[in-house]
């Protein structure tokens, strides 16, 4: 029983980190229909900011988190203006953004490599390799703090979307961009803000991942498929779905890794992606597309 609890705890801890990593991706797709393959590379950017804040000034990555979020949000505004705004009305916008964000991911990787070298980094606050022990069950402090922070941020995001005026506009645009525009919503501004928030979440996730995983510029290729599987399983554009998928798949992967083998734990995410696309392509919380 202890073993089952232990594995579940580890799965939950990993799920908390993945939830925030995937939330921004989901938001950007929901509002802008941008399949942002560059999202994980921007998470790495946030991780580097947290790393250097810790390395040079000794600032805890949890304290650096707002800085990382703001810097990446500003980067998101810049990217949106330069790369995404012009073609937002194109009928093939989503398809175009797949290629565009793939290119951006490579540019970001190259820029990070030039700025910080390709050496792997990890921030090492004392809690990153420490754990609480309850009997024989341990709760890793790093994942616990990262998971709690993720949940708080996602909760704040949910409250913002539900209760703020801009949140209303974002939700309206997510549901029907044309109808929202007809009702007076400045969909371009909503797109800009959503993109900035989404990329800001990448920055926040970067601060957390900086002490949970080691990272280097090319690391994002390992994350993109995992994050895509979370977003697709949750339902493209559903932040709640992404969170549910992150926790459930991480827990399942932890059990698979323990009782079947580590080789198969990563496969869990891709198997889930395959099954969802096969049997419920709209994902757990997505809406079934209507035939026109």
């Amino acid at each position: 029983m202890e073993q089952i609890i232990q594995v579940a705890v580890l799965g939950i801890g990993l799920g908390g980190v993945f939830a925030l990593m995937g939330a921004g991706l989901s938001l950007v797709f929901g509002v802008m229909r941008i399949v942002n393959l560059a999202h994980p590379s921007l998470i790495i950017g946030g991780a580097y900011l947290a790393y250097w804040g810790f390395r040079i000034y000794g600032i805890d990555p949890l304290i650096m988190l707002p800085v990382c979020a703001l810097v990446l949000a500003a980067t998101g505004v810049l990217f949106y203006k330069v790369f995404f705004e012009r073609d937002a009305k194109s009928a093939t916008y989503s398809e175009m953004t797949v290629l565009l964000t793939f290119a951006i991911a490579m540019i970001v990787e190259g820029a990070l490599g030039a700025a910080f070298s390709n050496t792997q980094r990890v921030t090492s606050p004392s809690y990153a390799t420490d754990a609480f022990f309850i009997g024989n069950v341990f709760i890793p402090k790093g994942q616990l703090y990262a998971g709690i922070t993720s949940i708080v941020i996602i909760g704040l995001l949910a409250a913002f979307l539900k209760f703020s005026r801009l949140g209303y506009a974002i939700r309206a645009t997510t549901q029907n961009r044309e109808a929202a525009a007809l009702l007076g919503v400045n969909v371009n501004m909503v797109g800009l803000m959503s993109f900035a928030i989404g990329i800001g979440l990448a920055g926040a996730a970067g601060a957390l991942t900086s002490f949970v995983f080691s990272f280097f510029p090319a690391k994002h290729w390992e994350w993109v498929a995992v994050l895509m599987s979370l977003v697709v399983m949750g339902g493209m554009g559903s932040i709640l779905g992404t969170v549910v998928a992150a926790f459930s798949l991480s827990i399942v992967a932890a059990f698979v890794g323990t009782w079947i083998g580590s080789t198969w734990s990563t496969m869990t995410f891709f198997l889930a992606l395959f099954l969802v696309l096969l049997f419920r392509p709209q994902g757990l919380f997505g809406e079934k597309p209507e035939l026109v």
């Binding site: 594995v7 801890g13 890793p140 390992e222 995992v226 932890a254 580590s262 080789t263 990563t266």
Partner: peptide, 12 residues
Amino acid sequence: RWPEEGFNDWLN
């Protein structure tokens, strides 16, 4: 054995 790429479950 763990997979060559994408393995994150180090604590487990």
